[in-house]
Simulated assay, not measured.
Amino acid sequence: MLKEIGSIFSFLTIIPTGKATLETIAKYMYIFPIVGIAIGLIVGSIAFGLSIFLDPLVVSLLVVASFAIVTGIHHTDGLADFADGLMVKGTKEKKLAAMKDLSTGSAGISAIVLYVVGLIIALSLSVGYELFLAILLSEILAKFSMVLMASIGKSASLGSNSPFVELMKSPKKLSIAAFITIIPLVVLGGVSGIVMFGASIVMTLFLVSLSNRSFGGITGDVLGATNELTRLASILIFVSI
């Protein structure tokens, strides 16, 4: 299992800890929340240390930069493509084509700007251990949301998302992912963690429904966008409770 966790960590970050095929990564997608814990601990610890010396707004900017460095921003790119696809008028085929276009449109650029600004503002509202906790819990939920989406969604077209959707149709795998996610949320987050968990499920269900109507299913870009949107929404909820 350590080998699989290392492979998935390499898939979700830029840190080379293992190699595996896309099918192998998809097979063990249900342990995404474990990697979310690792990423949350890394970025959260950076945030905690910086918050001792720096202004909250400066800390939040550096934290967003840390997320970008650690994760390689490939999920953020998915958010941009997702926004471009949604804004295209016409058939599902035209929307899917817009998502696959290598150039980023105005909708994608706007989505990234709003996302980054929102994340900086949300993170600046917490300091110290609370900031660490917000980052850790939101990152676990971001990864669980992708597992949940792959479990209940259908592929809009053949692509990198297909193995994940096919191999996650297992109640047992989803239950394991949910268990891994819930434990730290309840133990560390208490009521706030439970609220965040419920909100992440609602957001994922909404994005699945939206993607089904717009694209005929989910794609790799939709999964990436879900990761980013769930992270932002979870942090906003945490700092608001």
Rank of each mutant, 00 (worst) to 15 (best):
K172A: 13
K143H: 14
V58T: 12
F215M: 01
T91Q: 09
T226G: 09
K27G: 12
P16C: 10
L148T: 07
L119I: 10
L210S: 07
V59Y: 01
G90V: 03
P56I: 07
I140W: 02
V64Y: 10
T76L: 15
M203Q: 14
S51V: 00
S145L: 10
G36H: 02
L223F: 08
A122D: 10
L2D: 05
I14C: 11
S155V: 11
H74S: 09
F11R: 05
S106L: 13
L96G: 04
A98P: 04
F11G: 03
K94D: 14
T13L: 13
L114M: 11
G40W: 04
S234V: 08
S138N: 06
M196K: 00
T24K: 13
E166V: 13
M87Q: 12
E166G: 03
Y30I: 10
V63Y: 13
G118S: 06
T230W: 10
G159S: 03
F206T: 15
A80W: 09
S162F: 02
K143Y: 09
L22P: 01
L54K: 05
F53G: 02
I140V: 14
A47D: 05
A80P: 12
P16V: 10
L229A: 01
M146G: 13
L167C: 01
L148E: 07
M196L: 02
G90Q: 04
A225F: 00
S240D: 00
I120C: 06
V116K: 03
V186F: 15
I39C: 13
K169G: 03
L61P: 05
T226Q: 11
L62K: 04
M146V: 07
D101G: 10
S138T: 01
I180E: 07
I8P: 02
I241M: 15
G224A: 09
I121R: 06
L22I: 15
S200R: 04
V147H: 00
K94N: 11
F215E: 02
S45E: 01
G85C: 08
I180R: 01
F179R: 03
G90T: 06
A65V: 13
L207G: 05
N161V: 14
Y28M: 13
F53W: 13
F48P: 00
F11S: 05
I183S: 00
G85Q: 10
L236E: 12
S124I: 05
E93Y: 12
I5W: 08
L96Q: 09
G105L: 07
F11D: 04
T24Y: 12
I194N: 05
T76G: 15
A178Q: 03
G18Q: 12
G49T: 00
S103M: 07
L205M: 15
L125C: 03
K3W: 11
A38Q: 01
I237M: 11
L188F: 15
S209Q: 09
F238R: 04
I182V: 13
M99P: 05
V113D: 00
L136A: 07
I194W: 01
A225V: 08
Y129I: 15
K27S: 14
F82K: 12
V202M: 15
A156P: 03
K143M: 14
S10Y: 03
G40Y: 09
S162W: 01
H75V: 12
G118W: 05
L123A: 11
Y129D: 00
L61W: 05
G217T: 02
V88S: 11
I37T: 14
